[in-house]
Design a binder for these strands. Structure first.
Lengths: 238, 238
DNA sequence: GCTTGTGAATATCTTCACAGCC
DNA sequence: GGCTGTGAAGATATTCACAAGC
């Protein structure tokens, strides 16, 4: 079921000998929740650096400020290598660089937005994306009235322009923000154009080939989970 | 950390005798992932019903259409009771009602939106919310130029109007869509006004009292996870 | 014959606790 | 003395596999 994987660990082949200082690899499977926490650590380090507090940080400090535990912080990092000095902690800039490499945000990603409705426009304007190296450089919509307009300096193109744009603009990811009924069709087009990473905001299950990475953000699920918490877990807890 | 809970299961006290047909309770702890999948099942049932296919559904069918497994579907439901008939399956409308009760969306939730920027406006217009019973009935912003305007029939009010509005409009949840720097302050105001459920879109860790339920949607984390997948898990897999 | 509901087995993730190093 | 990195233990979640029931 989609999440087949096989770990495939030939004993003793887990890690190229001597490569222990290269962050961002290590073949063992890394839990999704670990990767998401790494994003949180990364942003915290950015914030601390901006306040020029915390040139030196400890797992305990990261834990206190993010709401996780110190053991968890260390375990999460351990999947990728060894980044700190015992008795001392981690050097902020250095750990930031390592995390950026691990997360793959040490380059800049070039992104296509498909669907320039309310949500699409908000995503085009979202400051958090460029701040972390995600650049929406092209937008697509099927509404002829929107074609040719610009939103936030980004030209809105017809869907037919997608394949050529993927090549000429070197687009690497797509953000899908169209209604649920057209999302599968859009996904197919995006995949056909050669894109292998999709962030989908449409509330529907998309079917994509195995080699395409798909991440869903479903606002209804989020708010329904909150509804569940309020309904059950009485008045307490996260 | 924050997720302290203690299960507190007095043996033999797990479930009030004879209440086995009441959906939506059962005291055992339910995994977050289970609840999120229930939302997905629920929406699938709605879709099938609208197509007037699937008056009768099986765990296998739900699994095939959502991408989970049949065993998982049955296990997820089992946390809350017993909803199907052996050899037959589940009756769509009946299961839908049960899921709605479990998720707490069989009522209508009245919601405050705080922060009417790009994202806030998109959320005000998001069709998926009212479709599932989530009604944004009041909006708040600190920008005086926005006060008094209406977006999608919803009046934008000053932050100072929040406490009174919570009472007079019976607001039960807040959606926070303000910049990271003001999010904590807004959260405090929202909590002070008596709201106990928060859906937070600001990319920062909010500290709230134990009795307040907080759910975060962090777009940067989502796209960074996609970046991670593209960078590592080579060309394959979910 | 087909599908649910569920103990038991497995796999996965988190926490503990401490040796190793600064 | 303090903090990391990590085996081992513990807790949680998923999957298997089958008895029970239509």
């Amino acid at each position: 079921m989609a999440t087949s994987r096989k770990a495939e660990s030939i004993p003793g082949d887990d890690w190229p000998a001597g490569a222990e200082s290269t962050p961002a690899a290590r073949s063992e499977h890394v839990p999704e929740s670990t990767v998401r926490r790494l994003s949180t650590y990364y942003r915290l380090l950015q914030t601390l650096a901006a306040q020029s507090e915390g040139e030196q940080v400890s797992s305990g400090k990261i834990a206190a400020l993010t709401g996780f535990t110190a053991a968890q912080v260390r375990r999460d990092l351990a999947y990728f290598g060894t980044f700190g000095r015992r008795g001392v902690g981690y050097e902020n800039q250095e750990l930031q660089r390592s995390l950026a490499t691990i997360l793959g945000i040490d380059r800049g990603w070039r992104i296509a937005l498909v669907g320039v409705g309310n949500l699409g426009q908000a995503l085009l304007s979202y400051r958090g994306f460029p701040r972390q190296g995600f650049h929406v450089v092209a937008a697509f919509d099927r509404d002829p009235r929107k074609i040719g307009r610009k939103v936030r300096r980004v030209l809105i193109r017809p869907m037919s322009a997608l394949p050529a744009a993927v090549r000429s603009l070197n687009l690497q990811m797509a953000v899908i923000a169209v209604p649920a009924d057209s999302a599968q069709e859009v996904a197919a087009a995006v995949v056909a154009a050669g894109i292998t990473g999709i962030l989908n905001f449409a509330p529907t299950k998309l079917v994509v080939p195995e080699h395409v990475h798909l991440q869903n953000v479903d606002l209804s699920i989020e708010i329904e989970y909150l509804s569940y918490l309020l309904t059950h877990e009485a008045p307490a807890d996260t």
